[in-house]
């Protein structure tokens, strides 16, 4: 299990290739990547992600540990960036490895649902016209109930 919080970009290809490499008991690897999305109609100049140093790492580790307890996983990786990013940049990734795909898919979804609403990150969008904090969506909170 590895949790990384950093400002710098990460190399998705290298991370995905190295994840659970050599684990011949793992039949399934699922990866998810979150990317800075432009505003509807365009115009996003940048997104800034603020976080709570200390609590962020603890919250992500707690979420990853819970996934390991609930599903038959061989490994979990969570990388989440903070700071300034432009449209198209990678914000974060999760990877899960399991003997079977159902565990790997479900655990990846669980990780995403939880870190959306329970990890202390806040996004702010900057365009020529405005700067606005991204509001949490009710659907994201509702998504936690299925777990």
């Amino acid at each position: 299990m590895r949790v990384v919080v950093q400002e710098a970009p990460f190399d998705f290809g290298a991370e995905a290739a190295g994840f659970a490499a050599g684990r011949h008991d793992m039949g399934a690897v699922v990866t998810f990547t979150g990317i800075v999305r432009d505003l509807q109609g365009g115009g996003l100049e940048a997104m800034e992600i603020e976080h709570y140093p200390g609590m962020t790492e603890k919250a992500l580790e707690k979420i990853a540990k819970e996934a390991v307890e609930r599903w038959a996983l061989g490994d979990v990786l969570v990388i989440h960036r903070h700071g300034r990013m432009e449209p198209g940049e990678q914000i974060m990734m999760v990877a899960t490895a399991a003997p079977h795909r159902k565990d790997a898919f479900e655990a990846a979804e669980f990780l995403m649902d939880y870190l959306k609403s329970r990890a202390p990150f806040w996004k702010k969008e900057f365009s020529a016209e405005s700067r606005a904090w991204v509001a949490a969506r009710d659907e994201d909170e509702d998504a936690l109930r299925r777990w």
């Binding site: 979150g34 609590m55 989440h80 509001a135």
Partner: peptide, 10 residues
């Protein structure tokens, strides 16, 4: 103690 709006990770 920390105060903040609902989180928007991911």
């Amino acid at each position: 103690v920390a105060f903040f709006p609902p989180m928007t990770g991911g």
